[in-house]
Design a binder for these strands. Structure first.
Lengths: 217, 217
DNA sequence: GCGACTTTGTGCCAACGTTCACAAGCGGCT
DNA sequence: AGCCGCTTGTGAACGTTGGCACAAAGTCGC
């Protein structure tokens, strides 16, 4: 039951949510927590939570629950965010600007090692205390700061090119906000966030609700 | 095989991606497309794509493929984005500002019916041509413009309160960017986007890659 | 009109994820 | 010490999702 067991993808996504809840419990001074309480805070079923945690090992005490601090440590280790991990952000338009200023990254284990943009007009400008660098420096920064994660917040047209540069510099994980499907080598992980897609999914459910109303008549 | 068949959640998420690809094909002047080509553009398996489309009906022509325009129309109808759907956005801080200025919403079937914030300092300010309104006007706008979707881009502390107000005004779908789990009635859909969670998932995979390297030694 | 070729639509099965239900284990109370 | 109540950890059933492989159905060339 040690780290040898493979952890399902769905579980990993939830571990991050548990960690968030645990952090606010530490702030609140809570010492122990039951699976039921934590599950409620994370918005999941308690059985699912226990099964998720069981992939990491057995840290709970039957009859009592989990020690918040211990659990937080375990999940942080599993996710690899015990020390700050460095990321680079490419594209400081509307969205990139917001991301650069988002405090949640630092507080949850990430450090922005560099901001980059292609547009000469914004290079040198400081955002949240960080200067925007030109693309030519990307490679240097990635290697010097040992960056493994890149965030793409450019328009769709530039995204694949930026992606290729990131990969060439040694980045092996990419978070993509541009609305296109990126082509990457097999060893590189990509996660995408498409805001319009999220809205369209909600729209679909609205559509269903409306149809359901008619069916009831 | 008509609209009576229930469409899996996973399929709905991909339909939005197909729609995006189809839109750029229309722009490119493409008339027909095979499942293989569209699947490639959307980054999925062609069998999966065909199965997804089969939930909507049989619009393809064997030996030829799909008529781009027809398919686009069908998916749009299914997702309920044939006409522009109205949304309200609450919270015009860093992220809300970026979202308000994001052109992808309008181009993919959404119209921002109103921007709202609690902070008196930003009320009245115009963002992307829209004025920021005070929270007291939320209810009026939602009802007048028949808004069914709300976007929450406030800090975590304010999110639940904003959510309650949205629900009270009649919003039945919420896209939540605040890092907390929202409590809502059963008839309300919530989708959450947590940027730090996305990074933590990538971090986990980086962790695994690093561990894998050691194991190879 | 007919045959060869192409591509769709789908039945089937394997893999994955979720939920239930309960035995095992621990703390506290008497 | 022994019992009781509480909570974990997990085996087993169930539902969902993914992917192969192939029959059905159409086009194109002759």
């Amino acid at each position: 039951m040690s780290e040898g067991r493979a952890i399902p993808e769905a579980t990993v996504a939830r571990l991050a949510v548990y960690l968030r809840a645990l952090n606010s419990m530490v702030d609140g001074g809570l010492v122990t927590v039951s699976s039921d309480a934590l599950a409620h805070a994370a918005g999941v079923n308690s059985a699912k939570l226990r099964k998720d945690l069981s992939y990491l090992g057995s840290f709970g005490t039957r009859g009592v629950g989990y020690v918040v601090e211990v659990l937080r440590e375990q999940i942080s280790t599993c996710l690899g965010v015990t020390e700050h991990r460095s990321v680079v952000l490419v594209g400081v338009g509307n969205l990139g600007h917001a991301l650069a200023g988002y405090g949640g990254f630092r507080s949850r284990g990430f450090r922005i090692a560099g901001l980059f943009d292609r547009d000469a007009a914004v290079i040198g400008e400081a955002i949240a205390g960080l200067p925007v660098l030109e693309m030519a420096e990307l490679d240097t920064v990635v290697r010097r700061e040992d960056v493994s994660i890149g965030v793409i917040a450019t328009p769709a047209a530039a995204a694949q090119d930026v992606c290729d540069r990131l990969v060439a510099s040694g980045v092996t994980s990419i978070l993509n906000f541009a609305p296109i499907v990126l082509a990457v080598p097999g060893n590189v992980d990509v996660r995408k966030v498409d805001l319009a897609v999220e809205l369209q999914i909600l729209s679909f459910h609205e559509q269903r609700k409306a149809a359901g109303l008619k069916a009831v008549l």
